[in-house]
Write a protein that binds this DNA or RNA. Structure first.
Length: 897
DNA sequence: TCGCTTTCGATTTTT
DNA sequence: TCGAAAGCGA
């Protein structure tokens, strides 16, 4: 059992009063929140579903979730229904509740930023950009920022210019017409329904009792409004944050919410957690010395608890003559530090590569240090360097489409660009693939449905005989081709219905002007595997993390603190005085200082600060922060400091204790074929879109509404079905004729379903129910059951789990019943009861396709899951042999297993 | 140190 | 394209 400090205990025990926790870096904040949640659950009349916790990122959410699950298992054994406690981001909560309560939003999907950009450019004429006199392609990101700022900020009472109002209106209408949300709309639309009397509001009122908001310092006005509405409906509120760690002001984070929380909420108890359990006294002192230069902050002081001992030489600052010298120094220190004994929470081990991080203010510094590390064979991981389009394989892939568009006329160039990638590529086959391309060249009057970029890409690879094995000497090539498949998918989701000639032309333009700096190299997305390597990341990404060894290099003026940037910004188009607290978007020295503070406080013990004049004209002078931390006595300069006096032992990387969260669809994919899983989930190959896409999901959503209404006591009549189909069946790429056919078919299927099943509707227990269970091995499985029925049979009741399936749905997959019995485990976790029957219901034939009695002796399915997650983590994903599924698997084109 | 001209470089990122 | 930093002359 962990011992808590008095302040921590006070926070944990304050359950029924509103609570503000000011938690400094390393104060054990996550542990405190988790324990407080467990204590809430220990009370009578509180169930997991009464609790809602917001985090800033999905990653933080899964950390908090697994911590809570772990503590609950220890302290409240037998507790059921954990899945019904919401822990996640505000965005995904909003999306979840709006889709589950306002049924028309079921068909909506959320546009990622690159897809949003594509969408805006595609509808440039009607989406409002023209009204603001902004240029297609060039100003798109600024347009997005303007739309975001105007909807997520507090507006002043200055009238909004008419063209802006028109733009805003057009922008949202165009998105809604196409069943898309942007990230802001998820929140604004949900907020609308929370404010008015709706079944969404009722559900919050009857369900939620405790609201917890983590990283409260980074909340923006629209998010605060949502939080406040939930609170007003009748929730206890607890906010946790640190004003010194606000670093997202350029996204609208507003410090004032945490600074005056107790003025805006009633009966607030404020607790400060000032003990830092993470870092040595030296690190804490440097951080404190820096942050005290900020004026806008709460009066407080972080105290080193002494979990780490400061030793002379742990913290160094050196200034070099050139960046090369500086990088060489970092490389050398990494080598020296590897193997130094490091003790933490009672365990001792030798430091290894993964204990070290190099923190950057800007990405443009990453490639230099990466080169230096590569030279000395030090393993490292970088994210965020978007150089996909510089690679030869992607240039070759783009050539396919340049050739099709007649932009590239000479087939020899195309062939050579592929041939040069690997000796293993067969030239004869390449010729065939190119010959086939000639047949695909679009004509003036061809129909969009005949010309699908993704199909062309797959066909080319298949005909040229390209598989992973073609690049055995360079495994990254195939990863990058997978990433290119995603580029095509992003583009085509938005531009599928363009006429072929136009589609290929704008695709090439997208690659040239839009996509270039947007896609990382594919192998960086291989996230399941935990590699022992030095990490290179931005300070922003390091938020919430900790490392025994932290490097903060390049401490120059105009780098950290960063210079303000010129160029055309959003304030050229909209007036500054439209927005309250506009200045915070521009950022200043205090924001940069907070960033530096966050960077320093990532360190547990070793902290290496350095700088050197660079070749850039404005990065030659030392950062002002050097002067600021120089008041601390805990550092000195020494370029050749050696660690001879330290104890060296065997380097041992920290074991990854993070739970992995897998969902049913990922697992189903894996069980079908582990190589298919690798191709889709890790390499990122996307299957081609089709004209009929959306049918399965549409039917599914109609049924969901019918079932939900039935649960609420409302009967759906046959007459209402056409209307329901109109609302839910969204087939974005279908022509009018095909759409009519699909809708007619849908109505038929659903009428028949209703006729056959209506009499059993009173036995529905749940519909679209989230489930979850964990296997005690740091693996959490989650998913969603379509329908659960409970029938009374001669005094006993029988529970069936039903999964809907449509053979016409292109996205469908075949799984064995045994694997579906995963659902039964989830149901048991949810309700504490065992389910009896498992049913696959075929919607096209309108009959149960398979039914089985659930066998609870399935230890072996548990074993399969554990094995699966191990293999996924270790990247052991081989092609399966003699797989019955192969003949129908789309991926076999690039597999040939 | 001021004021003008020239030169340089153009974040950060989650949902 | 444009703002800020550096350079320069007084």
């Amino acid at each position: 059992m962990i011992k808590y400090t008095n302040n921590q205990q006070e926070a944990i025990d304050t359950l029924n009063q509103n609570l503000q926790i000011i938690a400094c870096a390393g104060s054990g904040k996550t542990q405190v929140i988790s324990q407080r949640i467990v204590n809430i659950l220990k009370q009578d009349n509180v169930e997991p579903k009464n609790i809602i916790a917001f985090t800033y990122t999905e990653k933080a959410a899964s950390e908090l979730k697994s911590r809570v699950v772990k503590l609950c298992k220890e302290q409240i054994p037998g507790l059921k229904g954990m899945v019904e406690m919401y822990i996640g981001t505000i965005h995904s909560w909003c999306l979840d509740v709006i889709q589950n309560h306002i049924y028309k939003y079921q068909k909506f999907s959320v546009l990622s930023d690159i897809k949003l950009k594509l969408f805006i450019d595609r509808y440039y004429d009607t989406i409002g950009m023209k009204d603001l006199d902004m240029n297609m392609y060039r100003d798109t990101y600024n347009f997005v920022s303007i739309m975001t700022v105007l909807r997520e900020s507090e507006l002043s009472d200055k009238p909004i210019p008419e063209n802006l109002q028109i733009a805003l209106k057009k922008y949202e209408t165009t998105l809604i017409k196409n069943a898309f949300f942007d990230f802001t709309m998820i929140m604004t639309h949900t907020l609308k329904y929370i404010k008015q009397e709706s079944n969404l509001k009722q559900s919050i009122r009857s369900k939620l009792k405790y609201l917890i908001v983590d990283e409260y310092q980074d909340v923006n006005p629209i998010q605060e409004e949502i939080i406040n509405e939930i609170y007003k409906i009748g929730c206890n509120i607890c906010v946790v944050g640190d004003d010194d760690q606000t670093i997202y002001q350029w996204r609208g984070s507003d410090l004032k919410y945490i600074l005056n929380f107790s003025k805006r909420y009633d009966n607030v108890k404020s607790v400060k957690l000032m003990d830092n359990f993470r870092s040595s006294a030296g690190v804490v002192d440097i951080a404190e010395t820096i942050i005290q230069h900020n004026e806008k902050r709460l009066n407080k002081q972080m105290i080193a608890f002494g979990s780490q001992k400061y030793e002379k030489g742990d913290i160094l600052y050196n200034r070099f003559n050139s960046t090369e010298e500086e990088n060489d120094y970092i490389v050398n220190e990494i080598k020296q530090l590897r193997g130094i004994e490091f003790s933490n929470k009672g365990t001792k081990r030798g430091l290894d590569y993964s204990d070290m991080v190099i923190l950057l203010r800007k990405w443009n510094k990453a490639s230099d240090i990466a080169t230096a590390l590569k030279k000395e064979n030090i393993p490292f991981i970088v994210g965020g360097v978007n150089k996909l389009f510089d690679t030869d394989e992607i240039k070759a892939a783009v050539n396919i489409f340049r050739y099709l568009s007649k932009d590239l006329k000479d087939p020899a160039i195309l062939i050579n660009s592929w041939k040069n990638l690997s000796e293993k590529i067969d030239t004869t086959k390449l010729f065939e693939a190119v010959k086939n391309l000639d047949k695909e060249k679009p004509e003036e009057d061809s129909f969009y449905g005949e010309f699908i970029l993704q199909d062309i890409f797959w066909d080319f690879l298949q005909q040229a005989g390209i598989t992973e094995e073609s690049f055995e000497n360079d495994e990254f090539v195939f990863y990058n081709l997978g990433m290119f498949s995603q580029v095509i998918d992003d583009y085509e989701i938005i531009n599928f219905t363009r006429p072929p000639l136009e589609e290929i032309k704008t695709f090439l333009e997208f690659i040239k002007y839009g996509a270039e700096h947007h896609y990382p190299e594919g192998w960086l997305n291989n996230t399941y595997k935990n590699i022992n390597a030095v990490k290179i990341m931005t300070i922003f990404q390091s938020k919430g993390l900790e490392f025994p060894v932290v490097f903060i290099p390049y401490l120059n003026k105009n780098y950290l603190p960063s210079q303000k940037f010129g160029g055309k910004g959003i304030w050229h188009t909209i007036s500054r005085d439209l927005i309250i607290d506009q200045e915070r978007f521009e950022g200043g020295i205090e924001d940069e200082r907070r960033l530096f503070y966050v960077a320093i406080t990532r360190s547990q013990k070793f902290l290496f600060l350095s700088g050197a004049p660079t070749t850039k004209r404005n990065e030659k002078k030392e950062s002002q922060f050097v002067l600021e931390f120089s008041r601390s006595d805990y550092w000195f300069s020494s370029k050749d400091h050696n660690f001879n006096k330290r104890i060296y032992t065997e380097p041992k990387a920290l074991e990854n204790t993070e739970s992995i969260i897998l969902n049913f669809s990922i697992l189903k994919n894996y069980f079908e074929c582990s190589y298919k899983f690798k191709m889709s989930a890790l390499y990122g190959f996307c299957t081609p879109l089709s004209i009929r896409i959306g049918y399965g999901r549409g039917i599914h959503n109609v049924l969901m509404e019918i079932h939900k209404q039935s649960l609420a006591g409302i009967t759906t009549t046959t007459k209402e079905i056409p209307n329901l189909v109109d609302i839910h069946v969204h087939i974005p790429y279908a022509s009018k004729r095909i759409l009519r056919l699909i809708k007619r078919k849908s109505i038929e299927v659903i009428k028949e379903y209703l006729r056959l099943n209506e009499k059993n509707f009173d036995s529905i227990e749940y519909t679209e129910k989230e489930i979850q269970f964990d296997l005690n091995e740091n693996i959490i499985i989650n998913g969603r059951i379509d329908l659960i029925k409970r029938k009374k049979l001669d005094g006993t009741s029988q529970v069936s789990i039903i999964d809907f399936k449509s053979t016409e749905d292109a996205q469908t997959y075949d799984v064995s019943m045994e694997q579906l019995s995963l659902y039964a485990l989830g149901y048991e976790e949810l309700s504490g009861e065992k389910a009896d029957i498992l049913e696959l219901y075929n919607l096209d034939e309108n009959r149960p396709y398979k039914q089985e009695i659930i066998d609870y002796e399935f230890n072996h399915i548990k074993k399969q899951i554990i094995e699966a997650s191990r293999n996924i983590q270790e990247n052991k994903l081989a092609k399966t042999k003699d797989n019955k599924q192969c003949w129908r698997c789309f991926y076999k084109q690039l597999c040939k297993g």
